[in-house]
């Protein structure tokens, strides 16, 4: 197990290095940075000054190492737009997106897994069909529209929850439901299919032949095996939710990372964009690593 963990962590580290190179290169391939920073009205003298100021006259490799050395210390420079350090911006925005993502994922899993199990156990009954309808609806409905509908019902008409903002936990309820519902169908269907397969397996028959009660068969023998691929999917979904929460953040006016990314792209605020890309990629890598380790813990065959 320890060997597997070390191996897997080394792979994650290699991916992280590759990603940081890619995210660095991406910026430098998108055109002359100095011109972009200086803006359309700048003279060539001003552009040169900026080039020297930001070290853009250095060889690319030297720039990368300088940038990398800073990035490791979480120093991503200053935002062109806000004139404050990027890390402070991230520190303010990231927790909102992370919190939203975690709650949304929790909502998705707490609905999707039981629903998937139930749909499999009660296959071809009305429960199964209802679960399928719920998931198809989640796949078909645009998340901004669902978000707006929630606002209409619970905030405007019933006045139970606030319309927008991010000051209290109440502000996160509707966005988390909207975002979670978006992630739910895939998890639900994978759980259902996994359960169907496992319930038909020989070892579930063995468990029945032992005289085990249905609940123990379902959880210990069936779900324990069926949930393994779901974990990997959940990690990927969580990554998507962090990167893809832009729409939901816009609908609910949450000042999260998605909003910041969207605005920074529009403003050509490169240090911010670059830092967000890098941070999201690192979170993604960490998630995949965590999912792999959890899976290895659950499935001894993966530890080899």
């Amino acid at each position: 197990m320890l060997r597997f963990m070390i191996q897997r962590s080394l792979v994650a580290l290699a991916v992280a290095v590759t990603v940081s190179v890619a995210s660095f290169m991406l910026l430098h391939l998108s055109g002359d940075l100095a011109t972009a920073i200086a803006g359309p009205e700048a003279t060539s003298v001003q552009v040169e000054a900026i080039r020297v100021q930001y070290g853009l006259n250095q060889p690319l490799l030297a720039q990368f190492f300088a940038w990398g050395a800073k990035a490791i210390r979480l120093d991503f420079g200053n935002s062109f737009y806000f004139r404050e350090s990027v890390i402070d911006l991230l520190a303010a925005r990231l927790p909102i997106t992370l919190f939203l993502g975690v709650v949304a994922l929790a909502v998705a899993l707490f609905v999707a897994i039981p629903l998937g199990v139930l749909a499999a156990v009660r296959r071809d009954t009305w429960i199964d069909r209802a679960a399928l309808s719920v998931s198809v609806l989640g796949q078909a409905m645009p998340s901004f529209w669902f978000g707006l509908t929630l606002i209409m019902i619970f905030s405007v008409n019933l006045r139970w929850l606030p319309v927008s903002g991010n000051t209290t936990w109440k502000h996160f309820v509707l966005p988390a439901i909207a975002l979670g519902y978006y992630a739910m169908p895939a998890v639900m269907r994978l759980t259902r299919n996994g359960m169907l397969e496992v319930l038909a397996s020989d070892y579930v028959r063995t468990a029945r032949a032992k005289g085990l009660p249905p609940r123990k068969i379902l959880i210990r023998h069936a779900l324990r095996n069926a949930v393994i691929p779901v974990i990997a999917l959940a990690a990927v979904q969580f990554g998507f939710m962090l990167g893809g929460s832009i729409v939901i953040e816009a609908v609910f006016s949450l000042q999260g990372l998605g909003q910041l990314a969207w605005e920074s792209i529009a403003r050509n605020d490169f240090p911010v964009v670059q830092a967000i890309v890098l941070v999201l990629a690192m979170i993604y890598i960490a998630l995949t690593l965590a999912a792999d380790l959890l899976n290895a813990f659950l499935d001894p065959r993966l530890r080899q």
């Binding site: 397996s201 070892y203 063995t206 324990r224 001894p300």
Partner: peptide, 13 residues
Amino acid sequence: VFQEPMTALNPVM
């Protein structure tokens, strides 16, 4: 006792 001992045992237990 079943035919296929590989699949008749729970792989994660």
